[in-house]
Write a protein that binds this DNA or RNA. Structure first.
Lengths: 351, 351
DNA sequence: CTGAAAGCGCTAACAG
DNA sequence: CTGTTAGCGCTTTCAG
């Protein structure tokens, strides 16, 4: 007889034997207790407790063909922005039968293509992606995937479902806030050049277009973002464009860097220089002066994205497949109403 | 005939049929190509490509009894400290057959107990935990687990393997650096009160003990850390202990908050107040003045921790099971050699 | 509501 | 080096 190395832990058959029922009844008692009479159910639960039985997930999946994996592909695991999203994702998934499988695309389209294909072959129950800018290959590949897909961060045409906001609108609102404060020579600082960053740049351009005579002053680097990068970029900008009176930063890291550079150069914020960031990282509120920024509820976005997937997996009717989660411009001291000098500039330039 | 809903995708039997070999040969060709003759191997590879065959992981695991899951339990997914560790973990695991299953213990021992039990039942291939302070229940439960376990962050007696450094020694070195710079009335700021934080506090005490006549001035809150928290705590401290000339912060968030509070109050750093943090977050170097801190290579720690697990899983001999990854005190402008006023204080107080 | 049989897709064991 | 057979632990199908 070919005896096989059993795992040693109790199986459903052990429970069935102890409870004096068939294995399938135990299986039913576990998955849908209502299908089993109360008496048997009690006997089974007793046996489960006694044996310390825990179902073998692999066997469940193999037999049922139902995966319990939700694939999550994000461009960064370090960036606080995604850390908040991840927290929301995990919190929402924790009480369910599903597990998260995270992949790091490193802001690379090729890597995203590779991971989407890799994960898709594992037949996940669902998939979560960041952004709307997947490659054509990946979009068409996923378009006829049989699992639900949600794209987060941005608001727009999604493959299946989506939740996020318009980064262009958000940046436009931020820059408009600078204009409302009286700033007139407004620059834009960007890094990494990922799709969201470029859309914020576009929003900056749109806002400036509404300001007669204003010309875009932009400095973007493909290099990763960071406080040090923000400081260096802003320093470079100040050396070139000497007459700027405000800077819209593509994120709060850059904004904090810009603030530090102002401190280092003795430039008064907000009097001589207005600064606004993006993302509302925790540090922004504590800075001196506190940095104005744009807030998106990333934790909630992560939660709701998973919620949409779960609804679909449970066959529930999902409401809107494309959700705009919105944003808030957070006004703080770094963009206070300007002093007379700049007010003068307003009347001079803005008319 | 009871026909069953097949998943639709090609199975190993399909490949075997197309290649004209037995299923097991395909299985071998995939797992250990050397066991199969070159001719068959080529035919099999050809068939795999043609059918676009991808092995069913669940079936592999079920049949072999070999899990491919490495459970990772961390106290936070948001904290940059763990984000770096996570990046190291994922980078090291990516090219292997293993997957990471992350759990968030939220700095709670109860939650850690719960998740360890939950994950352990799934029979992971290995487990990674943060810190050495698991509950007695969990420690003894894991002590006779059959999978390898690595504990990261701290250096000390581990359940199985460990990699990290002594946070007490690191903090002692940081405070000693303050003393070497001439600071004499040194306070300690802490938050969250997790085990590492308390060990840093102990290191602070040890360093002060070496300073004749110095008394600890400590302010710790059980609340989560953050820049705003650091600012508030330091403000509270300044209102009470008016004569402190330096502050050792349990992490860089708090240190940046302390720096901001100094800026808000017009306290000159480093002349009137020395500040040192912990962790060397990216922002610390870019602050004005740049903040001194303690660096631990968290990315490398994550990588090596997984490396230790992989070595064990592959039956390789692991070198030292308990690794001290060390730390570096990073000296920056926030703790520059002090001016005459403080030098005077030194001779007056330090003797 | 309950059960026996069949089989998910793969691999360990044994034999050649 | 290759194949046959049995079976991992569970759930679906079909029959009561």
């Amino acid at each position: 007889m070919k005896t096989r190395r059993a795992s040693g832990r109790p199986t459903i058959a052990d429970v069935a034997r102890l409870a004096g029922v068939g294995a399938i009844t135990v299986s039913r008692a576990i998955r849908d207790p209502n299908q089993v009479s109360e008496e048997l159910r009690n006997r089974i639960e007793e046996a489960i407790r006694e044996l310390n039985y825990v179902p073998n997930v692999q066997a469940q999946i193999l037999a049922s063909g139902q995966s319990n994996v939700i694939a999550v592909l994000l461009p960064s695991l370090t960036n606080s922005v995604y850390a908040d999203v991840i927290r929301g994702i995990y919190d929402k998934v924790a009480p369910t039968r599903f597990h998260i499988q995270i992949g790091n695309t490193r802001y690379s389209e090729q890597e995203e293509d590779r991971l989407v294909a890799l994960f898709a072959w594992q037949r996940p129950a669902a998939m979560l992606l960041a952004g709307l800018d997947q490659s054509e290959t990946t979009r068409s590949f996923l378009a006829d995937a049989e699992f639900p897909i949600v794209q987060i961060m941005e608001h727009g045409p999604a493959i299946d479902m989506g939740i996020g906001c318009s980064h262009k609108d958000a940046a436009r609102a931020a820059v408009t806030h600078l204009i409302d404060c009286g700033y007139r020579r407004i620059a834009f600082l960007g890094a990494r050049k990922d799709p969201r960053m470029m859309r914020r740049r576009d929003g900056y351009r749109e806002a400036l277009a509404a300001l007669p005579g204003a010309k875009p002053i932009e400095l973007l680097t493909p290099e990763p973002s960071g406080v040090a990068r923000g400081r260096a970029l802003f320093s470079q900008l100040l050396d070139t464009a000497t007459d700027i009176d405000a800077v819209a930063c593509g994120n709060d890291d850059l904004a904090l860097g810009a603030l530090f550079e102002c401190q280092a150069r003795g430039i008064a914020v907000p009097e001589q220089m207005g600064i606004i960031g993006f993302n509302d990282l925790e540090m922004a509120a504590a800075a001196v002066p506190a940095i104005s920024t744009v807030r998106i509820d990333r934790y909630e976005m992560g939660r709701r994205a998973i919620g949409m997937l779960l609804d679909r997996l449970e066959g529930k009717k999902v409401g809107e497949p494309i959700v705009d989660i919105g944003f808030d411009v957070i006004r703080r001291a770094s963009t206070s109403a300007v002093d007379q000098g700049v007010s003068a500039a307003r009347s001079a330039k803005g008319g």
